[in-house]
Amino acid sequence: MTALTLAARDSATMLRRNLRHMLRYPSMTFMIAGMPVVFLLLFVYVFGGTLGAGLGGAAGGRAEYLDYVTPGIILMTVAGAATATAVSVAMDMTEGIVARFRTMAISRASVLTGHVAGGMIQTLLSMAVVVGVAVSLGFRPTAGPVEWLAAIGLLALFVLAITWLSVALGLVAKSVETASNTPMPLLLLPFLGSGFVPTASMPEALRWFAEYQPFTPVIETLRGLLLGTPIGDSAVVAIAWCMGIALAGYLWAKRLFDRDLVR
């Protein structure tokens, strides 16, 4: 077999290992899906009446705000899953399993790609749960098949980018406890963007940050694909952010992993 075939086989083995961990310890998956659902219920039923009326639409109220906030809540799922991936990587690095892998004839890259693939599956499944809850509450996307495919592709690209970043954060952490905290700033970005309120309602300095941080163009593109709102150049900016974060996360994770193997 070629080196590429061996790497693919080893990566599939590592993916199965990570999926079995998820099945044996489902509490993390429940937390990833459960936290965005709690925020969805909180913002729709506690704040939705007031915030929905402030959107300026014809209907206003909770129904309009549910449509507005759901894309932001979906992106919160990605940020929450980053913590789970970072913790999983840190556990492998601190508990000695990687040292054992080092003595085996397996591809180095397979350890990281197994975490990335497992994290993506866990995140996308959690997203599906969040969308299902939103639909049960009255979320009604107007997207056709093409728009749905584009939305899923965008989300998969964004999940890939954040997952590689979270792998790097798990590698750079000195302990599992540290790894559980390093991705926390990602949870704030949907709030400091257009996830919950329009950026036009923010003070000028905060509005500048909200409009140019990576979550906002992804949210606006997702909102446009699912609900038909104007997208403008958000799609191009969102893809550029995703590709840049994915490349930076991959290179950072690879350098950290290779450094730890040399030690």
Rank of each mutant, 00 (worst) to 15 (best):
I239R: 12
P185K: 14
T178S: 01
L23Y: 15
G49P: 04
L55N: 10
G34Y: 04
A84K: 02
A3H: 12
A238S: 02
T29D: 08
R100I: 03
T83I: 10
G118T: 12
T123W: 06
R255V: 08
A235I: 08
L42T: 05
V38S: 10
F30Y: 15
G232C: 03
G72R: 07
M127F: 02
A117N: 07
R9I: 06
G144V: 14
L247E: 03
V135M: 03
L42H: 02
R16A: 08
L149W: 12
F101E: 14
G56C: 08
G193L: 10
I106R: 02
T83N: 07
L41Y: 11
G61W: 12
A143W: 00
V133Y: 13
T2M: 13
S194R: 15
P145A: 09
T123P: 08
F257D: 05
V167Y: 10
A253W: 10
L206H: 00
I162L: 05
L256D: 01
S201D: 00
L187N: 05
R255W: 04
T2S: 14
W241T: 01
E95S: 14
G119E: 03
A7K: 13
V167P: 11
P230D: 15
A84H: 00
Y212V: 02
P26L: 03
L189N: 09
V129S: 00
V78E: 08
A161G: 15
I97N: 13
M184H: 04
P36G: 04
R255M: 10
P183C: 01
F215T: 09
M120L: 12
T178W: 06
I121R: 04
W252Q: 09
T216N: 11
G49R: 07
S126H: 00
R24H: 13
M93L: 03
P217D: 04
M14V: 12
S136C: 05
G195M: 07
L169W: 14
P217H: 00
L155S: 07
L188A: 05
R62I: 05
G249K: 10
M91Y: 06
Y68V: 01
V197F: 12
F209A: 01
R100M: 15
V172R: 14
R100C: 10
R17K: 14
R100V: 11
L155H: 10
R62W: 06
G244C: 07
G244F: 05
